[in-house]
Structures are given as C-alpha cells and as structure tokens.
Design a protein around this nucleic acid. Sequence first.
DNA 1: AATCGATGTTGACACTGTTATCATGGTCCC
DNA 2: GGGACCATGATAACAGTGTCAACATCGATT
Lengths: 194, 194
Amino acid sequence: MITVSTSISPARAYHHGDLRSALVEAGLEALKTTAIADLSLRQLARDVGVSATAVYRHFPDKQALMRALASEGIDQLGQFQKAAADGAVNSADAFAATGRAYVRFALAHPALFRLMFSQCEPIGASIFGENLAARMLQAKAAVATGGNPEETRRLMIQAWSVVHGLAMLMLDQQLPADDALIDRVIDQATLFPR
Amino acid sequence: MITVSTSISPARAYHHGDLRSALVEAGLEALKTTAIADLSLRQLARDVGVSATAVYRHFPDKQALMRALASEGIDQLGQFQKAAADGAVNSADAFAATGRAYVRFALAHPALFRLMFSQCEPIGASIFGENLAARMLQAKAAVATGGNPEETRRLMIQAWSVVHGLAMLMLDQQLPADDALIDRVIDQATLFPR
DNA sequence: AATCGATGTTGACACTGTTATCATGGTCCC
DNA sequence: GGGACCATGATAACAGTGTCAACATCGATT
C-alpha cells in the first residue's frame, strides 16, 4: 500500500519514498488525537519510522511543518464549505450553509482548525479572498448588500467573526458544542439586515 | 518596595515573601512580551529569583499557574468591560461599549487573552453569567429581546461570538487590528434585530 | 564507472516540566 | 527557652523536546 501525495510537491521516491508527504499525512493523523501543543517533531518522525533529524531535509524547522499542515487544513475547509454551499437551495441558504460548515469543520477537526490560525502567515488571504468558497461567499454578500462594496466587506467580516467566534468558544468549551445551537445562531436573519 | 497580593490568597510572608503572588505577577508581566507557548516555568522562577522547583510548593503543575494567570485576566477583562459600560449614555450603547471593550482588551493583552481561553475549566461560567459585566449585559439583552429568555440567550451568544471572533481574527492577523473596523462591526444595528 | 548532491543517521547541546531527596527556618507547645 | 514540626525552598536527576554539526548512503549525471 502506497500513500499518495496530497498535492504538495513532486518529491520523487528516494530513500524513504516521499518522506515529506508521509510527514504531513502523519501530522494530520496525529492532530486527530493530539492537542496542538503536544504535537512533537520527534514523535512524528518515529511514527513515519525515520530519524528525528530527517525532518530537517524537508522542513527548515517545526513551524514550517506546522504551516504545511495548516495549509492542508485550509484546503480541506474550503472543499467542505464548497460542498455545503452546493447543496443549498438559494443564495441566502448557501451563505448560511457555508457558515454552518465552518463551525462544524472546526468541531470535527479541533486541533487542525486551531493550527490553521496559529500559523498566521499566508492563511488570512487564503480564507478571505483567494479561496473558492470565499469568492463565492463574497458574491453572495454583495447581492445581500445591494452591491455596496463597503457594506459587503462589513457583512463578510461580521459573518466571519460570528462563525469564527462561535467555533472557538465551542472548541474552548465555553459554549456547548451543540448542533442545534449552531443552526440557531447562524440561521437567524440577523446576518441579513434589511 | 513590596508587591501587594492581587486578591488571590492569604499566603503570609515566608522565606521569599509571598512567592505565589510574585509568580503570578511575573507571569502577567512576561505575557506582555512572550507568546503563550514560549512561557516557561523555569524562566518565571528565574525572574523571581527562585529555584525552578519552588514553584511546585504553590502550584501542582504548570497548568495550575496558567489557570491562575487566566483567572487574573478574566478579572481584568470584567473590570475593563464594566468601566466601558459605565461610560455609556444609554442601554444599547452600553451593550456595544462592552463589546468594543472586549475586543480592545484582547488587542491590548494578546497573550493573556489567549491564555484565558486555553484554560477551559472555570472560565466560561465566569465570563458568561457570573461576571459583573456579564450580568449587566444579560439585563441589557433581555430588554432588547422583550424579555423572551430563549431569544435573550441567543442574542447573548451571537454577540459574544461576534466580538470573540473579531478579537481572535485580529489577534491572528487575519483581519487588520483596526479600531475603526471594530466600531464598524460592533456598532451596527445588526446585533439588535427589530 | 567515478563523482556529486540529495536524503537519512548519529551524537550532542541547551532547554523544558516534573519528581525524589535534602536543607532551612519560622511557629507552637511543653 | 528549647525542641519538634511543617511549610517553604534548593539540588540532583530523568525523560522529553527542537535543533545543529558531522558522518553515511545511494540514485542520478557525466
């Protein structure tokens, strides 16, 4: 059984056979059960069956690996949001569906979601503008605000803040991670002032 | 010059002279310049001029010290919010002022703010119910929703989500830490659907 | 076939949180 | 007043971490 590269780099099979992808995959796997602070380079290397310092042939330091994992997470979130929006019946519903997907993704992948925002560098732009889902979102928001660009931006930021805050508070156990609560907070027409 | 205890425990002066408070104070000071992940027990002990393991006479482990710091932060945030609300002219303005204070506090004390939510245990209840500012907030929200308790709760959660999300996204550099942006997002009547 | 550079390993260093063991010195009781 | 006790502190040590320098290996290029 060969583990397939996840769209990251060419990286032909050398001694190990694309160690870089293996590390990323092991990292994503580890994040399913390990908190972000307990994620260890050496442990990851052990999981893959390689010496600790081999990692440094593919990543300059730990943070770089983290960034790679975060980038994977962003892609996954984007796909998940897009799928959710595609299943919606109308424009407003798609907007809300994207929000719900955002929070549900966070709850489903807590450590990964946190990691995505601990690595500040390229992520903001990806989520808020370059992303497929983000682009679509922006279009929806523009419709909702009658095309006023400043209002559109405010609505986007407001919507992003609500879902991000809700996700974080639930992850941090400050709010019950309740599906119904997600719907109640997001479905509200509040986000669409007439 | 004697550093005064910060409302934590009696802790008479022994060998050091209330080491516990000194550690908390040093921790808060360190959080002004150090990221939460780089906060070191040993470094804190060094700052206070005490052996590394002396800490364990006052805190069972590192997390306990962190929790003490977080608790301090919660108090500070509560006071800050209360002061902001007291300066407001009417009920709706007080509600918004509390929200603005929340975000501004986060921007002013990034590491401390993050820490407050990394230590999940007692914090949720403190902020969302037991707090002075929270109680007041709840009263305002009840007025805004005509007394409907379920709607009141939803409004509270929605408001909390917006400010928390906005704060987090700004802290993580996903949004510009712009004062005007805070006002624009929070002042909007959006939070008070008629 | 020899060389070279990319990949992986070994060993080491400084640092961390934590524990077990020992030292100190106020407090209280007789 | 003298001695026991216990809260507080210090030392030494252990396992674990991220990272660097030096050495080994092996496929690809000439």
